[in-house]
């Protein structure tokens, strides 16, 4: 393996991760500098509490039946899960290759990663088409939305090809995957991809408010 690939797989990733961590930390400080709104009201509703509301809100992502928007559109939920599992797999891969390459001797793991990342790639392509053709999606999309989605989809593509970690036949694929990973890490805090930093907070506050007011956990009605 070339020195360059070694550098790109390891040192460059660590730098990129450190950069991302620093910017995320600053983002967190930025969010926390906004004053949190309080709630003086006595609780309303029955059988709920802020704690239950927060838990329910956080676990919402794993309960497709909880929201009408996912309950009635099973495909939308499935593609969401596939896409995010693909992200987890590809991130995992970016650590496995430099630090635990021997794991990839397991054909089962290779196939699991390939299926997960391959399906996520397919979903990525579908998402690009949807974003470009659906009138509402076109209307609400920004250049960042398109770029982030294309970046992830291309990243999935190279992650898929990189799974066997085969650098003997050429380093181009691995090099591209790791360069994209580093770019991705640096770009993420400035893009919509940083949503996962906000997710626990948005859902915490919504859960706390609606739990206090007897709305969360939602009662399913249709």
């Amino acid at each position: 393996m070339s020195e360059t690939l070694l550098f790109v797989e390891d040192t460059l990733q660590i730098w990129a991760l450190q950069f991302m961590g620093t910017v995320y930390f600053l983002r967190l400080l930025w969010i926390l500098h906004f004053k949190a709104g309080g709630d003086r009201q006595a609780p309303t509703g029955r059988g709920t509490s802020p704690r239950k509301g927060i838990l329910y809100s956080w676990l919402n992502v794993a309960m497709p039946w909880a929201m009408e928007s996912t309950r009635k559109r099973a495909f939308m939920y499935a593609q969401f899960i596939i896409f995010h599992l693909g992200v987890v797999s590809a991130i995992g891969l970016s650590f496995i290759i430099p630090y635990a390459a021997e794991w990839l001797h397991s054909l089962v793991l290779v196939r699991v990663l390939q299926v997960s990342i391959g399906l996520a790639f397919a979903v990525g392509v579908w998402r690009i088409i949807r974003r470009m053709t659906h009138p509402v999606m076109r209307k609400i999309s920004s250049p960042d939305d398109y770029f982030s989605l294309i970046l992830l989809t291309v990243w999935f593509f190279f992650a898929f090809l990189s799974v066997p970690n085969n650098h003997q036949d050429g380093e181009g694929v691995l090099m591209t995957f790791f360069l994209l990973t580093a770019f991705f890490l640096v770009y993420v805090p400035f893009s919509k991809i940083s949503h996962y930093l906000y997710y626990p907070f948005t859902r915490f506050y919504l859960g706390r408010t609606l739990g206090h007011r007897g709305v969360f956990p939602l009662r399913r009605t249709s």
């Binding site: 926390l32 949503h195 997710y199």
Partner: peptide, 15 residues
């Protein structure tokens, strides 16, 4: 406030 800032920052335009 913080709740509003989060709602304004967190949208991923998923539709």
């Amino acid at each position: 406030n913080r709740q509003m800032a989060l709602s304004l920052a967190a949208c991923v335009h998923c539709g």
